[in-house]
Nucleic acid binder design. Structure first.
Length: 437
RNA sequence: GCCCUGGUAGUGUAGUGGCCUAUCAUCCGGCCCUGUCGAGGCCGGGACUCGGGUUCAAAUCCCGACCGGGGCGCCA
């Protein structure tokens, strides 16, 4: 029985295979017919290869079926690998048997190798075809590597991977708008973050946890850097002195990820035409107060306590870049600007954001671990401590000092790979108007 | 939530009152071709988002709907 299942990807065939028989499979990217010879470009996830079909060397019916198959049809080819100076890979396949496994309809709603660009909307409507493009695939191969790197880093640093509920009962932390869902006879919400749960984990003795978390946020933003469904490395760690322990963990993670991608994703980076510069540690630390001073020097005066808006955030990014700092922390924000769980330090919070060239990648803090203070902070934010009973309970029977952060995965990819739209970095983006596919 | 902006073949575009029987490319179909690789040659195909209105005349101007793109706020 001769297999028609792929034995090798296009990049796994080399000089050792010359003269031998191999079965390859994939999508027909292009057919170049020259009468009694035809060159079929077959694409698999590793790249492309050329099948050279000679009319006189094949049953005529098979030759016809093969060379008239529509672009993007799925075929498998059993044939002899032959060295060829003319073929791009240095070899070509001379088919002995060809199976058209699935004929693609024509015309395609989106060309894979067409010489015209397609709008993002068209691409997303046909994402499964869009993802056949090597440069689009490269982003998701790198995404996989980023997550792999994160898991390795967390394992090395004694973090335990957890999964917290995504259906929650009530407004968790305030701030962002939540998606409401029906939960039998009650209303429930999709979690905006694992915040309260990962903190509760600190009372379990598991000490250090991380989650590859989903964030669901019902904000009606319409920008190139926001999604209504996004992912993040979300961590919490106990027995810390203050937020600098968390920052050290975060910059270590970022460094590890950048290094991992630089070392393991050369092929994909080349496909994208991008280079990843591994940052040096430690990252710069700029206090909120100093950030305001830096901005004031450039004529941007922000009242103390005020937000650093998008424009100013970018300007600060430029200033830091001039000093050779792509990555930097903004630390010690005004307390009022941070959520109730951020640990106070006078009128400031032991909280930080990690920025990359003016784009927020992460925010974190030391958390309040004293139940009395926590109740005060909840009340001070205009929230009702009664709504947080299950959460507060976890603080009353032995809660160590702790802190953590959330680091957006799409934001990482967007910045690392210089993508101008965050939708490039998630398979099926959810935004203000898109919920399908 | 506020603001700006767009909708022309499968895809991407040109066209901003009459010269539009709508441009170009790509794409699709047919035929020719034994070394293509942005293949080439010949022939053919396909579109003005929808509904009102203004006008002698609307792809073009106005109103509405629907569907997009983006900025701000907020954040990851």
């Amino acid at each position: 029985m001769i297999t028609m299942i792929r034995q090798k990807y296009s990049n796994e065939i080399g000089s050792a295979d010359y003269g031998t028989e191999v079965t390859v499979a994939g999508w027909i990217e292009d057919v170049r017919k020259l009468g009694s010879v035809a060159f079929i470009i077959l694409r698999d996830r590793a790249g492309t290869l050329q099948v050279t079909a000679l009319k006189k060397e094949m049953p005529i019916e098979q030759f016809k079926e093969f060379t008239s198959a529509t672009r993007e049809s799925v075929v498998s080819v059993r044939g002899i690998v032959q060295q060829s100076a003319q073929a791009r890979n240095g070899y070509e396949i001379l088919p002995k048997e060809v199976k058209v496994l699935n004929l693609a309809a024509a015309p395609l709603p989106l060309g894979v190798v067409d010489k015209v660009e397609a709008d993002m909307d068209t691409r997303l409507d046909n994402r499964f075809i869009d993802l056949r493009k090597p440069n689009v695939q490269a982003i998701f191969k790198i995404r996989s590597a980023v997550i792999q790197a994160g898991r390795e880093y967390f394992a090395q640093n004694k973090f335990i991977e957890v999964h917290t509920p995504k259906i929650i009962s009530a407004s968790s932390e305030g701030g962002t708008a939540l998606f409401k869902v029906k939960y039998f006879e009650n209303d429930a919400y999709l979690a905006q973050s694992p915040q309260l749960y990962k903190q509760m984990m600190m009372a379990t003795g598991l000490d250090r946890v991380f989650e590859i978390a989903w964030y669901f946020r019902a904000e009606e933003h319409n920008t190139r850097r926001h999604l209504n469904e996004s992912t993040a490395f979300d961590i919490e760690m106990a027995f810390i002195n203050d937020e600098t322990d968390v920052m050290n963990t975060l910059e270590g993670l970022v460094h590890y990820i950048w290094k991992y991608v630089a070392e393991n994703c050369q092929t994909e980076l080349k496909t994208l035409g991008k280079e990843v510069k591994v940052p040096t540690l430690p990252f710069a630390r700029v206090s909120y107060d100093d950030a305001l001073k830096l901005l004031a020097e450039r004529g941007r005066n922000i009242e103390w306590g005020g937000d650093i808006g998008t424009e100013d955030e970018k300007l600060l990014g430029d200033i830091m870049k001039e000093n050779g700092q792509d990555f930097y922390f903004i630390t010690r924000y005004p307390l009022a600007a941070k959520p109730f769980y951020a640990h106070p330090e006078g009128d400031k919070a032991r909280a930080f954001d990690l920025e990359y060239c003016g784009m927020e990648l992460s925010s974190g803090a030391q958390r309040v671990h004293d139940p009395k203070l926590l109740e005060e902070r909840i009340a001070a934010k205009g929230l009702n401590p009664k709504d947080f009973e299950a959460y507060l309970k976890a603080f009353k029977y032995g809660m160590p000092p702790h802190g953590g952060f959330g680091l957006g995965i799409e934001r990482i990819l967007m910045e690392m790979l210089g993508q101008d739209n965050i939708r490039e970095c998630i398979l099926f983006p959810r935004d203000r108007t898109r919920i399908s596919p």
